[in-house]
Write a protein that binds this DNA or RNA. Sequence first.
DNA 1: ACAAAAGTGTTCACAATACACCCATGC
DNA 2: GCATGGGTGTATTGTGAACACTTTTGT
Lengths: 229, 229
Amino acid sequence: MNPSRQHIQIAVDAVVFGYRSASGLSVLLIRRRFAPHAGAWALPGGFVRDHESLEEAVSRELEEETGVNIRYLEQLYTFGDADRDPRGRVVSVTYFALVKPENLRIFADSDAEETAWFDIQKLPELAFDHPRILKTAIERIRNKISYEPIGFELLEEKFPFADLHTLYETLRGAPIDRRNFKKKMMSLQILEESGERRKQAGSGRPAALYQFNKEKYFQLKEKGIVFEV
Amino acid sequence: MNPSRQHIQIAVDAVVFGYRSASGLSVLLIRRRFAPHAGAWALPGGFVRDHESLEEAVSRELEEETGVNIRYLEQLYTFGDADRDPRGRVVSVTYFALVKPENLRIFADSDAEETAWFDIQKLPELAFDHPRILKTAIERIRNKISYEPIGFELLEEKFPFADLHTLYETLRGAPIDRRNFKKKMMSLQILEESGERRKQAGSGRPAALYQFNKEKYFQLKEKGIVFEV
DNA sequence: ACAAAAGTGTTCACAATACACCCATGC
DNA sequence: GCATGGGTGTATTGTGAACACTTTTGT
């Protein structure tokens, strides 16, 4: 067949997850300025340019539309049904990103009327087939957490143990025994005490702050980590 | 940006795995008839047409090029580096397929000079970035087997237990204790004895033939199967 | 009778689970 | 001094791993 007869556009879209123990797991959405679906909430994304890789395209779009600083990015899935975009045939390669709370600051730009974080429990209506994409992403993060310590990419550099605990409970959607969880986490030896303690807080005993030991984490990943919580 | 300025082609490629206890895990390759890489071995695939979904495109290409009858197909990964195809910018959505031995019959067609199964231990040189794609697929099948009983899709309808055992040992690349393996497999209750016994064989005790209980398998999958061998 | 593959159970070690009380701080 | 969240250990159960001999057939 002659490929020059193809009229398919290629786009990238990103599902960016952020987490704060107070507000839970959130997704970054933009409100579209232009048709189709002007005014509707959607995943950040856009068309791939001729000479950039897919990853470069996602990073650029995220930078342009939201200003977030992404530190973890992996491909999620490619959606290519013929009728998924009213403008014509668009195949979208979707990505899955995690950002630390330090980088939750966002801004809107020319293509996006507004940018906001939404708790995954309280999502607005979404444009295109983005509900399906988001559903796929949430499944992925739920699965992923059971074999890879991605808390690493979602928490602040130094964090109280309770934050990690709450993150896992949120993603699992079920309570996890505090002592057993800590025992297992510590046995992996990827956490170290920073010596510091939390200053803020309301009342209650101040919590020790931990940080990930990246070297041990990557060593573990090499060997094929097994990690069931 | 204006998407009409894009000049990116979209293709699909498939990594088709087949298995026979005698010959091991094999991949279906075609020898290219046309440039670029004419005469080289490559994964079956081709350009997506304007009105077909990605899955339709893979199925069609596989049918056209090899005649195999695919019963399991899942998306693998999308490769989109700017320089991966000398003809220009081509983004390839790759798929991962499993076929049963009954369906190993293949034929070449107009685009393919020749079609053949290759043991994954004895692969020829491959065109384009297909070595990378194949590497990704092999990783995927290795991982997948540890949490989903895909033997289901690779073995004949009725099979001796030893076939399943050998398949897992092949994919794991390490011996697995026969008794422990059987114990675990049987505890999942997704296998049932067919009552028949193997007729063929050389010498040795004839083996009971098992078959998968699809209903129980899907029930198990619903609940989130956990399956470490 | 012997070679070749199938079939089968028990013991041991470790990992997962269940579970409740004391500690340090703010107000 | 009390409310709030942080921190810790032990006993029980379940699961994974190691391990060798007997049975049925073909030649």
